[in-house]
Amino acid sequence: MSVFPEIIRHIPQRDYGIEGLTVRVDHTSTGTVYFVSAEKEVHFPEHAHAEQWTIVVSGKCLLTMDGATRTYQQGDTYVIPGNKKHQITLCAGYAEVDYVDDPCDGEA
């Protein structure tokens, strides 16, 4: 069962080709909103993008920036500055909501 309510499950999914990862994406006129959940551990390699604000809905993740790794859990928030290289690992049972300051984030 999804941690997100039915209203969120109507938002289109983006396929990252990673089993157990569900990402729903909604573009606004000013940014992109992501609803992310991981049924199993997911490791995203180092990458960068526009500024991002995240709130952890459930579970925990490990975020690495500038060589330091921090753990974030349910209720925690964090900001990733724009164009800052970072790496993140989502633990099984993790869910988050992200806002990325780019209305076309992730679109080719």
Rank of each mutant, 00 (worst) to 15 (best):
35 F>T: 01
95 A>E: 03
59 G>T: 12
36 V>R: 02
86 H>Q: 10
89 T>C: 06
81 P>D: 08
61 C>K: 00
79 V>R: 14
52 Q>L: 07
28 T>K: 12
87 Q>E: 13
22 T>P: 07
15 D>S: 01
7 I>A: 12
60 K>Y: 09
20 G>P: 06
7 I>V: 12
51 E>Y: 02
103 P>I: 11
74 Q>A: 15
91 C>D: 13
15 D>R: 00
16 Y>A: 02
53 W>E: 02
45 P>H: 10
70 R>W: 07
52 Q>F: 05
17 G>I: 03
105 D>V: 05
56 V>N: 04
82 G>N: 02
74 Q>N: 09
36 V>F: 03
51 E>R: 12
12 P>W: 00
92 A>V: 12
48 A>Y: 08
67 G>Q: 09
19 E>C: 03
97 V>A: 12
12 P>E: 10
38 A>L: 01
63 L>C: 08
9 R>A: 05
14 R>K: 13
18 I>N: 00
11 I>Y: 05
14 R>F: 08
92 A>H: 09
10 H>W: 06
68 A>N: 15
104 C>N: 14
58 S>L: 07
54 T>V: 15
98 D>Q: 03
55 I>D: 00
6 E>S: 13
80 I>S: 00
32 T>Q: 09
102 D>M: 03
93 G>H: 05
90 L>T: 01
43 H>T: 04
56 V>E: 03
95 A>Q: 01
40 K>R: 15
39 E>R: 15
21 L>A: 08
73 Q>A: 14
59 G>V: 08
102 D>G: 04
47 H>S: 07
14 R>D: 02
13 Q>D: 06
73 Q>E: 15
54 T>W: 06
62 L>H: 15
37 S>C: 11
50 A>P: 08
2 S>L: 06
90 L>C: 04
2 S>T: 14
2 S>Q: 08
39 E>I: 02
48 A>C: 10
48 A>P: 04
63 L>F: 12
88 I>E: 01
54 T>G: 06
81 P>G: 06
90 L>M: 10
104 C>S: 14
96 E>C: 11
84 K>Y: 06
48 A>T: 06
51 E>F: 04
9 R>F: 03
53 W>M: 08
108 A>N: 12
26 D>P: 01
25 V>E: 13
73 Q>I: 02
80 I>D: 00
57 V>N: 03
46 E>N: 01
13 Q>W: 00
10 H>K: 13
68 A>H: 13
21 L>N: 07
38 A>R: 00
103 P>V: 09
31 G>W: 06
58 S>A: 14
58 S>N: 11
65 M>A: 09
8 I>E: 07
63 L>N: 09
105 D>W: 15
37 S>M: 09
83 N>T: 09
53 W>K: 08
94 Y>F: 15
21 L>W: 03
35 F>R: 02
59 G>P: 09
100 V>M: 03
49 H>C: 04
